[in-house]
Each structure stands twice: as structure tokens, then as C-alpha cells.
Amino acid sequence: MSAPITPTLLYLDNVSVSFDGFRALNALSLAVDHAEMRAIIGPNGAGKTTMMDVITGKTKPNEGTALYEGTHDLTSLDEAAIAELGIGRKFQTPTVFEMHTVEDNLLLALKNKRGPLATLFSGIAAQGRERIDVLLERVRLTAQRHRRAGELSHGQKQWLEIGMLLAQEPKLLLIDEPAAGMTDYETADTADLLRDIARSKAVIVVEHDMTFVRELGVKVTCLHEGSVLAEGSLDAVSANERVVEVYLGR
């Protein structure tokens, strides 16, 4: 393998997943470039979450190829190994470590050695502290630093989770419905943040909220029944007859 097979960061080809006969993904193909932001839309059951599960190693596909940076076969790695490669994920419902403080949540997420021995004997380095200060500032949780994550509001938890994602210093971020349960102001804010992140990293955003997707202003992929239905700018996709059919029914 002298030259990379593909210049893309993430390359899915012909990926299929079925649960007890139900095909959650059906020959899905998708490619995402370095420092590209992509929005994924699609009705319920289109396979958006399953796609993320495949990329992050939670679900193994029945068939198909999933390559990262052209060389890493994502289908043969587990979640932890994939996360170490630089793929971060934010869940649909915010999942943070509720019993830990905001600070500790970020501390656990910081890019660092992940082995048991390393964590058992690690002191907390000054540079880690600085990183956390910066991240807290960025996700606007400096004031909440010592509060338990479980005490945060829904929106704050979303932001904390994005902060944890950034702390991992990933090259590819998968973000599931970041705007869910946020106020309009927070939504706009989140869009700003994501655009900012996408300057240096690849971002895949799954979203239902079309206003939010429009605000992001990026290439859109529409999934339906486990495969790609349309791809292009939001205007082009929403003009697509089949997309309209799927969304409006009949």
C-alpha cells in the first residue's frame, strides 16, 4: 500500500446491516473529506444512528467496507480503538458522567494515555489544566466547573458533551442532533461552534431541524431506508422529488 487508496477521511462502501431480517442499512455508500462538514438528514428509521454505530464500532456491518484515512478498517476495531484513532461521537441524548464534576468530565476526555496503569499513576499535569481552562471557556461552562454534570441543564449538557468531544482532539466528529432541546439562541450558538470546529476537523452532523441545517450551510446527504437518497446542497436536496415524497409521504 504505497499510495493511499482514497484521499477521503472516511469512506463507506456498500455497507449493510440487518437486525433479524430488518435492514437498517442497505448498501450505504458515503465519503467525507478532511475538514469537511456534512449534514445527514432523513426520516425516522432511515439508518442515521445505525450508520454512526458502524463508524464508531458499536455495530458490525454484515457486509461492506468502512475505511478511515484510507487504511484503518473500522469493521475490525472496537469502540475504544476507533476513538483512539481520532473519531469522536456525541450522542442524541446527551450522555455525560453525571456523578463527575464538569471539570472531571473534561479531564477524562482529554487526549492522554488511556491504559489502566497510565491513569492509575498519572498526576494532573499543568498543561492539562490549561487545556481544560480553554475548553471550559469555549463551551461556556467556566462558572460550572465544580458542579456535578448531572446538575446541568439539558443545553449545558449538550455543550459539555461537545466540549468533551473537542478535548479528545479528534479528526472526525460525529454529532447526533446537537440542536435537540435547545433554545433558538443556543441553536444559533451551536451552529457557530460547529462551523468553527469544521475549519480544522471533519464533522458529520445528523439533524432533523432544517433551520439548523440551513444555518450550517453545508453539503447535505439524505438517507432513506438505509441508503443514500440524495446528496448536494440543501436547496438541491429539498428540491429533489423523491426526497419530497419521502418526507411528505406518497
Partner: peptide, 18 residues
């Protein structure tokens, strides 16, 4: 802290790379 993280949200801990 990782142990408690595993206790409270095991799969989240995995996705963080632990």
C-alpha cells in the same frame, strides 16, 4: 474516575477511547 465513568455510562466511556 474512569471506573465511576464505566459504572454510570459504560458505552460513553468506550467512545472516549477507554
Amino acid at each position: 474516575k474512569v471506573l465511576v465513568a464505566v459504572r454510570d455510562a459504560e458505552s460513553r466511556t468506550r467512545f472516549l477511547g477507554y
